[in-house]
Design a protein around this nucleic acid. Structure first.
Lengths: 102, 102
DNA sequence: CAGTTACATAACTGGAAGGTTATCTGCCTA
DNA sequence: TAGGCAGATAACCTTCCAGTTATGTAACTG
């Protein structure tokens, strides 16, 4: 699952789509509007996001509204949290150095 | 930068390498040992990690010890943090539902 | 019912990913 | 100095990815 999540997040178009969805539901056409890209290209990106579980889709007549699904983001965050102490250690070192300069 | 970071993290072999490096420096041969994969394949993965800034490499005679570099992980975490309220909101909803069932 | 809107699907293309084997380089050691 | 060890690089293959255009399909609208 982490594979699909990180792979999905590796594309700037897809991250921008998620950023848009963080502000609420949107249709495919709405999501496609900001990009200089064909509609099928966006549909493909949405499929990638859907397979990664990062979005879910409803139905409203001809429209297929997309919603953000947070679970994989949480999973990714938790994985990264395992390394948190690592860079915090760096900051403590930096702190120490700065204190030494006083 | 986030592109390269997330792309690098999308591969399980590379995540495993990072996990190993979290416990301290290691040489290429040491890193390659756990995997049923040729040494050049590992070297490629290391190059990906290096380009993404996730590792740095030193020199010790013929050995090129690798160290974990935390900065891109921090950057990725901060990006994800922008969505944190999103799933926390879900939990608050769940909480509310559970309380309603009492 | 004809046309249009909203989106999906198919087929193609160029380039990057991830693996392989074979070979080269640099450094240590006997 | 000859040989071996650690690792990088090259050349190749196959599969996937991100985009395209063209076409199909379901649902609304006049």
């Amino acid at each position: 699952m982490l594979d699909a999540t990180f792979a999905a997040l590796a594309d700037p178009t897809r991250r921008a789509i998620l950023a848009r969805l963080a502000q609420g539901e949107a249709t495919v056409t709405e999501l496609a509007a900001p990009f200089a890209m064909s509609q099928p290209a966006i549909s493909k990106h949405l499929k990638v996001l859907e397979k990664a579980g990062l979005i879910t889709r409803g139905r409203d007549a001809q429209r297929r509204p997309c919603r953000l699904a947070a679970e994989p983001l949480e999973e990714a965050t938790q994985w990264l949290a395992g390394y948190r102490e690592f860079w915090e250690a760096r900051y403590r070192q930096l702190d120490a150095v700065l204190k030494g300069m006083e």
